[in-house]
Amino acid sequence: MNYLRQVTRHLLKDLQLEWRSRDAINGMLFFSLLVVVVFSIAFDPTGNPTTTRQISGGILWIALLFASVTTLNQSWAREVRNSVLDAQRMVPAPPSALFLGKALANLAFVTVVELVIAPLFVIFFNVHALGNGWMLTAIMPLGTWALVVNGTFFAALGLRAKNRELLLPLLLFPISVPAILSMVNATTDVLTGDVDPIQPYFWIKLLAAYDIIFTTVCLLLFETILHAE
């Protein structure tokens, strides 16, 4: 119970900080909008509706992946200013509560971006789900959590490294390959609807397993990287 309260405190602090500036959400929103527009310029979405349907799941996730990478570094940069992180190290609360609070805050930010970008996506790419659209309500949060939990962890890991802006995608992309594969395939299956309806379940299960495994690893190892020196 105590742990839960500590996580909530960290989460509320991050949400409040974001509410004051709204830098992360605005930046991510505009960035993902730009990625979507650039992709619709790179090929013609109205001329090739079938192709559009097949690749739009991938484009959506690439836009979200790039957008979250741009903001994940910033979420820790906030803690470095005024040596807040050094203070956090001395706090008696478990370090994993700090991590979990921040990862949940990042999940909330990316979810807000998804809620805005999804309708735009439907309009620009002229797609609607031919399969079970309700499955997206499971795929989107699971996929977002997979990106955000590892992303938050690696952003913290790279805090004191040289070239930390570059280090995050270098670490996050290879580790996320199974998750990206699952979320893109599940989304594409739902959008195209031309496969066996059982198929997306496998990807959703794999995504859930990935989330559980890596959330556990992140929580276990966060203390080590917070006190790395």
């Binding site: 790279g158 040289k162 670490l171």
Partner: peptide
């Protein structure tokens, strides 16, 4: 990542 994070204990 090893190269970026320097040759120290951290």
């Amino acid at each position: 990542a090893r190269k970026f994070s320097g040759g120290n204990d951290e």
